[in-house]
């Protein structure tokens, strides 16, 4: 198992959490985490892994910090 520090922002916090250290099996991807949290992929804006932008296919390793933001587009 790996431990990932997951940080959620804006609307993704509602009914979930702000930040949590969560355990996942080896070779878990960002997409797996998003799915497990029940976040619709179409609502995803920024995905930052250790402050660097990544896509959903990226595999996570132990002690990663993953930040997930919703898509914000209004003006």
């Amino acid at each position: 198992m790996i431990q990932v520090n997951v940080k959620l922002f804006a609307s993704f916090r509602i009914g979930r959490f702000d930040r949590e250290i969560r355990e996942y099996p080896q070779a878990t991807t960002v997409a797996d985490v998003v799915k497990e949290l029940g976040i619709p992929e179409g609502e995803i804006g920024i995905l930052l892994l250790n402050s660097v932008h990544v896509d959903l296919k990226r595999q996570l390793v132990d002690k990663d910090v993953l930040a997930i933001f919703p898509l914000v587009g209004g003006g």
Binding site: A10, S11, P70, V72, G73, G75
Partner: peptide, 8 residues
């Protein structure tokens, strides 16, 4: 950019 309670 804004949406509801949130902005960037």
């Amino acid at each position: 950019a804004i949406a509801g309670w949130f902005g960037q």
